[in-house]
């Protein structure tokens, strides 16, 4: 085995173990801040796997979008809603966890069996490697033009929707003059939708 091949093998083993143990930590750790930072590590390791798969553009996009945007957004959300609360114990929680763990293990066994036993038509065409970015650009502006434009509309909708959903409640009247302000139409004052039965 050449040096390049063994390096690739070592990189795959390292990144794969980071992905698996990091995601286990994301799911299992009790402190959610640790989970969020581990999630960033998992995203970085997945970007490394993309580099191993000859996809430098998508690796860069993964780092920019996931680590730079999604993970930071999740950290912000944690800091905004981070209230120490004692969760109400639920009957049969352990049985539920074991049962869902069994179902997930079954799903995993099924998936791995499919992965290994399917006769993939290997080897495929030789990867184009560094040309990949150019090829992605060609795809985006020829045969994937419609999804590309739809993605921009989707992002605009998501942006406006997130602003409308998450913005603070506005006052129905101007503080200085007392005149009614039409912003009150957009969002009502902060009254709970239901009376919270668990707190009373």
């Amino acid at each position: 085995m050449t040096i390049a091949a063994s390096t690739e093998l070592i990189c795959f083993a390292l990144l794969g173990s980071v992905v698996i143990f990091g995601s286990l930590g994301v799911v299992l750790l009790s402190n959610i801040v640790y989970s969020a930072f581990l999630l960033g590590g998992v995203f970085m390791a997945v970007a490394g796997l993309y580099l191993l798969l000859n996809a430098s553009f998508v690796a860069a996009a993964q780092v920019l979008v996931y680590v730079g945007a999604v993970n930071v957004l999740i950290l912000f959300a944690i800091m905004l809603v981070n209230k120490k609360e004692d969760l109400i114990p639920i009957k049969g929680l352990r049985i539920r966890k074991l049962l869902s763990g069994g179902i997930c293990a079954g799903l995993l066994a099924l998936l791995i069996r499919v992965d290994i036993t399917t006769p993939w038509s290997l080897p495929g065409p030789v990867p184009i490697g560094e040309e990949a970015t150019v090829r992605i650009g060609e795809h985006l502006f020829t045969d994937y033009l419609l999804p590309f434009e739809l993605a921009s509309i989707l992002l605009l909708m998501a942006m406006i929707g997130a602003i409308v959903l998450a913005r603070r409640d506005v006052l129905g009247a101007d503080i200085g003059t007392g005149d009614p302000v039409d912003q009150g139409l957009i969002e009502k004052t902060n009254t709970p939708l239901l009376i919270d039965k668990s707190s009373t």
């Binding site: 998508v58 993605a151 989707l154």
Partner: peptide
């Protein structure tokens, strides 16, 4: 994968809102 990343970003923003 690029499209999935786009949709995931939109989903995260709306979900957290």
């Amino acid at each position: 994968a690029v499209f999935v990343i786009t949709v995931a970003a939109a989903e995260a923003a709306v979900g957290l809102a």
